[in-house]
Design a protein around this nucleic acid. Sequence first.
RNA 1: GGGCCGUUAGCUCAGCGGUAGAGCGUCCGCCUUACACGCGGCAGGUCGGGGGUUCGAAUCCCUCACGGCCCACCA
Length: 943
Amino acid sequence: MLDKAYTPDAVEKKWSAAWKEGGAAKAAARDDGKRAYTIVIPPPNVTGALHIGHALNNTLQDVLIRWRKLCGEEACWVPGTDHGGIATQNVMEKQLKTQNMSRHALGRAAFLEKMREWTKQCQGTILGQLGRLGASLDMDRLAFTMDEPRARSVTHAFETLFKQGLIYRGERMVNWCVRCNTALSDIEVEYEERGGKLWHIRYPVAGQPGKFLVVATTRPETMLGDTAVAVNPEDARHKALVGKKVVLPLANREIPVVADAHVDAAFGTGALKVTPAHDPNDFEIWQRHKAEMGGPVRVIGYDGKMSAEAGAGFAGLSREKARDKAAADLEAAGLLEKIEDHRNSVGVCYRCQQVIEPLVSEQWFMRMEPLAEKALGALEEDKFRLWPDTWEGPYRDWLENIRDWCLSRQIWWGHRIPAWYCVFCDGDKVLVSWPGQEGVQTLKHLVQDDAIPLADVEARAESIHVSGLAKDSGALSRVKIQSAKPGPCGSCGGTDWFQDPDVLDTWFSSALWPLSVFGWPEETKDFKFFYPTSTLVTGYEILYLWVARMQMMGLHFTGKAPFADAVIHGIVRDKSGKKMSKSLGNVIDPLLMMDAHGTDAFRFSLTRQAYPGKDIPYAEQSIVGARNFANKVWNSSRFVQMNLPERPERPYASVLGRGAKPEPGWELADYWITAELHALSRRTAELMSRFEFAAAADAVYAFLWDQFCDWYIELAKIRLQGPDGAGKEAAREVLVGVLNETLKLLHPFMPFITEELYQALKPYTGEKARFLVEARVQPGKDGPYAVDPAPMAPVMEAVASIRALRSQLNVPPGLKLKVLYAGKGSRKEKDVVAQSAYVAHLARLESLEPAGGGRPAQSATAVAGELTFFVPLAGVIDFDKEKKRLMKEVEKLGAERTKLDGQLGNQAFVSRAPEAEVSRLRGRRAELQGQLGSLEDTLRALG
RNA sequence: GGGCCGUUAGCUCAGCGGUAGAGCGUCCGCCUUACACGCGGCAGGUCGGGGGUUCGAAUCCCUCACGGCCCACCA
């Protein structure tokens, strides 16, 4: 016998262990025609524990995987984690800082060793949490974006793209994070609107004392790197100055005035200071006017401080201090015309939120247009779909305006770029900050002149940058792109090779994930069977960073979209719609939720709110309803079990597909609930195919609770409490059968409790599967049935109206009533009367009999469909109350009749609306008329 | 500057062309031998404002207001 209430803990532990032991989540390449259904997990970064967003993401994937298994497909869910690049390195650096350590003090090798340890530990935490969630991941396939097989994929991809001319090295304006000390790609920059100032600065016109060109800028500190002032060529105010020179204040340098269409004459003063080294637009202006102005002057360094080129007095100051000083100096010189408040958006690092410094730097880049075209093509040809499709717009838009991808990062944690430089030929382009020495040394010098071993250079260097490679046309052809150290240099025969010190953007390996997890570029059996994968489930925040890039890489390398469907779910927010964050203190820990209310309840509460693309406002309260539902499932099974023989002679036959022919012992309720079950399984399949998780979960919930429990179980009690016989056996058969199939439909959402109950029912169902997930769901049939289930509707209506009468007149719940009915003998009435046993049982009646000729005195009245019920209640009820109740009812029905009369009297409606609609309303009108007549009669009788 | 999404019962949200729904909450009555994590019942919405299309609009179109998000080379 099952316990009175469901207690999740033991059940979850038991089945987690059993699934693991039995390999329930394993999938294998097959050649027996079974279809593959594949999902690769969005690999969580190894930055810590999983949050509720991960719980949602993985629950939805598990729902799909379990569903597809139940549908008979070879469903494979590949687990893994992501090394997480900057994010993870930041976590470790913070830890080191608390111990008064730094990565530089440790050195690269030791730091990486620490990172690997951390990764292992973190991966353990993550996998433990996924296990707790019930995620049926095939653990034999566990992958990590930086493990050896993935490194092979990454190197191969890099090498191939380089050969194809898609990866190149160039000196470009990049987004530099001065805190993380690395370049970032364009999409790793977030923009925040901030209040700032607009400084209007007078630049004296050369040779014309007292004459100024006033420029407006939000960043006065960068003026030290100005190489020109630009005005719009159409701007009459400044036309005369084009080609002339102005004196750059503070620096006392003459710079030209150039004409460029980029300048908006309406903004500020219409004159724009041009700082090519620190502003992307200015960089472009410089490229258009190289002949007229000098090259970029870098006044801000990688550390975010003013460089030597900024001049004495400024060098070494932070950007903020330099800004203040520039403003003060200008003021003192009388060159500051005015300061205005000005709001503008500034770029910040998506990992540390520090203000990004745009600066010119040499990096590895990837040309993206050719790949973006392929991704657009796949979308166009419907080989790739986004759910909901509202994401197609932004996705397409991004691809159409794609820019080259800055691939290199100046951090240590990541795939080291597989580019090798010959120390003899190109060692002079590798710049090393050497401890105890001013400025930089070249690698060539250190290795050849100072005879320091290459390995020691790498271990002891404070920083290593490569510069000048892109400008030396011969250098790139000498660079070797490969994973292992190359043999003798083709040019000089030297054997000293230095691997590029930078690592790849973490998203480069992520982009290859659906390929790399199956061993690509090797044509493994798994790769052939499971690639391309089926569905990707992820949040919209990484649509460009990850989804689009996987599409591009997958299509580029295999010609096939790496997944056909991307399900874009929302973000889990707090109850008031705010993003959860540690600093706001509004995070909900998934583990605590599972501890307190059970994993199934937690999963269900998330799934039930997972409407396509919608964010989920989540409060702990959300889970209570789901917990109650779990208990309802538990107790309905408990009830069924209690009513079964301890040892069945043989299992009950399945109810699937039954009901077309008369079944021994079956009656209306059996046909009805079977038909409803069939409809539910059809509906669930349809909703799942459209990734409508919330609606699917809700459909099962409503069926089990509102139909199976509230009506069918109650009706089954009539036979279960009666004598043995065909009827009782039929009730048992249907209870077991319907419950069993419902458990299957519910299993993807609530795996633990359904497993427990499915297993408990096995002696009665004869199910053979080891685990529920290995059982089969089947699409339900759509009638006809030997007994039409339709009469259940009027029966339910009759029950509801008598119950309402009882409740509203305060009839003692235990009092069994003798009820009389009257009608006109229509088909529908007969259907109800034929089920008077149902009505009597559910509405707690002693009897239900025809009223005969007259209307019984001293009775209350209820109408349902075409029937009127009289409940003789002399001495029990207050007839004033009954009168009021009836008047209210008359008023309500009367209002509906008035509305219908208006509609049916409208010639336009009658002639233009569909026939079925018109006759439906006419039918309702007739029914209302009868009900009203009946109620008014009663009112008259009551006086 | 461009684009997208939202505005429905006290709260959180479904519905998206044919008489307004759920969960939670409120209220009334029930320990009716599966479940008080339950059962039965009542109350509570002019579906953000305005205009249009339609026999008919919460549902389609236009417009406004208020939220939220995304993109963009807003000095």
